[in-house]
Design a protein around this nucleic acid. Structure first.
Length: 106
DNA sequence: CATTTGACAGGAA
DNA sequence: CTTCCTGCCAAAT
């Protein structure tokens, strides 16, 4: 099981209407500061249907890119459509941040 | 095996 | 608020 594989599994478990920061994903995936590696995983997103990468945003709620349709714009729209709360054109992490169970199994 | 690459994070200017 | 710079890590070359 490679790190990226874990990342995919974690992201795949993010419930609709919630989001996670790259930082959190990286940490939960096993490597605390591998946020950049997480980015790689998303970039080489193997299957967007099983990996809702749009639910992964930067630590400040903003977003950098999106391989899906319409790029970051589409990502933004999709999040809104799922009920994610926004604050100043950024995801309101205070509300829409997913509370991961620290002992959740991958 | 050595380098480069990113959809990052955080801090400084 | 905007750049710029550094640290970071895994994967791809």
């Amino acid at each position: 099981m490679t790190f990226t594989e874990k990342v995919y599994k974690v992201v795949a478990q993010i419930p609709k209407g919630k989001v996670l920061t790259y930082k959190d994903v990286a940490e939960f995936a096993g490597s605390r500061g591998a946020v950049r590696a997480v980015g790689m995983a998303m970039r080489n997103n193997p299957d967007m249907t099983i990996v809702p990468c749009h639910r992964v945003v930067a630590s400040d709620g903003s977003m950098h890119g999106y391989s899906g349709q319409n790029g970051v714009v589409g990502k933004h729209q999709r999040l809104i459509d799922e009920g994610v709360q926004f604050k100043n054109d950024k995801v309101d992490l205070e509300i829409s941040r997913w509370a991961i169970s620290k002992d959740r199994v991958l």
